[in-house]
Design a protein around this nucleic acid. Structure first.
Length: 472
DNA sequence: TGTGTCTTGAT
DNA sequence: TCAAGACAC
């Protein structure tokens, strides 16, 4: 009898997991598998560390089913070939991913096995809607969010699938690596003992997080989501990044809330749609992940300044809201979305540096790292992306702080009031690598670039750039 | 999901 | 004197 291999990737959950669900339908033994491939192994320090926790949690959940997660390292095609040689007849199941590297890898694997009469089933488990289901009337793909949003709002979101009742064991388990040997925490350094207090791990953690959000915060979401000093965000991005909960389940749970105003629900659902839109863009224009979405931006004259980049990364720009955000990211692995935009604008406009430098640092630090959302977000701010803000939209960090952190509570939390340290400001100095050589006195008292000067310089560069492009 | 500046009209 | 809106960048 053949066995069903369920290859887990960014879907580390048992509920609403279409690959797992399909695999259980024919009653055959199930082998849950996770492969550490080069793609995953080259991810940022925070992501890898957090991935280890997620794998640990999934393993435990599977143990409750008398099942186990098989861990393997290496190129997935080789791993699967080897498993086939050990197990004999296999069927393979996975949920689709939508970045170019994954698509190419999966396509190769699928054609290899299908030509050898191994059944490969790929299912939609990641997004609200498969990208190819949404097209403009003229048959192209959307490039602007609002029309995309209008289009997907008309589509039905599939009901979430239940957890499997049971998982049939194979007669013999293939060998598994030991998670510890992968050493996924080696690059996070001494930060992990602090980060561990801030994370919410696993399928169960995700569901508790969702319930808390629905019960306490969704009702105030539309009004307060931009306020960085309040806790109205869902904090589910972390769980979504590893697939510990599905977007569809969140969508339905939100819609089903009877006592919440439509406006609040819609504002939140929109955020899920933004995530879909990011992967949609990555599906139809894969270069968005690494390169300027608008090719002419390859000629933009970004500044290079190692010292200023360091200051930005380390929360030492002297611009309070920016520095607070960079510290929040360093010690929690997350940053309020509004502050992400402000910090990104400061780097790409006031300091006039390439968005990819900022993206790289975010990739290093974020535990909710999502390549599509981040690429789209950075290019949106920089002006090089689709649906991008025109370059002259320069966030004024002082105005933004006044609007979204009116009493300065958020800034104070991470920076400490002038002479006093807070819990989080102290943690930052403990976590910061010794090589940074920073302490409470390192932060300049004013912005390293004058806000008006930086803004004007950015606008000038942009208008010169536009002229060069026009003459080309 | 922008900001700065000018105008207008209420006080 | 200032909030609110229009407009340019």
């Amino acid at each position: 009898m053949s066995v069903n291999i369920v290859w887990f990737r960014r879907d580390l959950r048992l509920s609403d997991n279409p690959a797992l669900y399909s695999a259980t339908q024919n009653g055959k033994p199930i082998i849950p598998l996770f492969i550490l491939d080069e793609n995953t192994n080259s991810a940022g320090a925070a992501f890898k560390w957090r991935l280890g926790l997620s794998l640990e949690s999934l393993s435990l959940d599977l143990q409750r089913y008398n099942s186990k997660l098989i861990l393997r390292k290496g190129p997935p095609l080789n791993v699967l070939k080897e498993l086939k040689s050990i197990l004999g007849d296999i069927n393979i199941f996975w949920n689709r991913l939508y970045d170019e590297a994954s698509i190419n890898r999966d396509t190769e694997i699928k054609s290899y096995f299908q030509s050898r009469e191994v059944s490969v089933t790929s299912t939609e488990g990641m997004l609200l809607h498969s990208p190819w289901k949404t097209q403009t009337n003229s048959g192209t793909h959307y490039k602007v969010f609002t029309p995309f949003w209008r289009a997907i709002s008309k589509q039905e979101v599939k009901q979430a699938l239940p957890k499997p009742d049971k998982l049939v064991k194979p007669s013999k388990w293939p060998d598994s690596d030991d998670l510890k040997d992968w050493n996924l925490e080696k690059e996070i350094g001494r930060g992990k003992e602090y980060l561990i207090e801030k994370v919410n791990v696993g399928e169960k953690g995700a569901r508790v997080g969702l319930e808390t959000f629905l019960g306490k915060r969704l009702g105030n979401y539309a009004q307060a989501r931009d306020r960085v000093d309040l806790t109205e965000s869902s904090n589910l991005s972390e769980n979504l990044a590893y697939g510990e909960i599905s977007a569809r389940e969140i969508w339905h749970s939100v819609i089903d809330q009877k006592d919440v105003e439509f406006n609040d629900k819609e504002m939140f659902i929109r955020q899920l749609a933004w995530r879909d839109f990011a992967w949609y863009l990555s599906y139809f224009s894969p270069h968005i992940i690494h390169s300027n979405w608008k090719a002419e931006w390859d000629n933009f004259p970004w500044r290079e300044n190692e010292d200023e980049l360091k200051s930005w990364k380390r929360g030492l720009t002297g611009q309070p809201i920016v520095d607070a955000g960079m510290r929040e990211m360093y010690i929690t692995g997350r940053m309020h979305n509004r502050v992400r935009m402000i910090a990104a604008s400061y780097l790409t406009k006031h300091l006039l540096m390439d968005w990819r430098l900022g993206l790289k640092w975010f990739e290093e630090c974020l535990i909710d790292w999502d390549p599509a959302s981040n690429a789209m977000g950075w290019q949106w701010v920089a002006g090089s992306g689709p649906d991008a803000s025109p370059f002259f939209r320069v966030f004024n960090p002082e105005l933004q702080a006044k609007k979204f952190d009116p009493e300065g509570k958020y800034q104070m939390k991470y920076l400490g009031p002038s002479s006093l340290d807070t819990h989080d400001s102290k943690i930052f100095y403990k976590m910061a690598p010794k090589s940074w050589n920073i302490n409470e006195k390192s932060r300049p008292s004013t912005s390293i670039v004058d806000l008006k000067f930086g803004r004007d310089r950015a606008l000038n560069s942009y208008s010169k750039f536009k002229k060069i492009i026009a003459d080309l």
